[in-house]
Amino acid sequence: MNREKIFLTVNEIFREIFDDPELSVTDKTDANDIEDWDSLEQINLLVAMEKKFLIKFSVDDVENLQNVGETVDLIIRKIEEKGDEQL
């Protein structure tokens, strides 16, 4: 799965969590750009991403995430790590 596909899937997760089918995020989108993006929704987003991409985040992974782009990069890294573990 390339970055573009992962990004589109992440955008779908944002639309589901915030119940907004028109929502479009960018790499720079952060919690200041979406009114309802608070600590509860951050957890809901991360849990949805874990389920969708079959990965597990650690606290070190997620505690300093600044925006959507960093989150997508993290997902790519976790998928790659999972692949390495399975080799």
Binding site: I43, L46, V47, E50, K56, F57, S58, V59, D61, V62, E63
Partner: peptide
């Protein structure tokens, strides 16, 4: 609870 939340609490 997600594991990262449990870890965050411990940390």
């Amino acid at each position: 609870l997600p594991q990262f939340e449990i870890e965050a609490n411990a940390k």
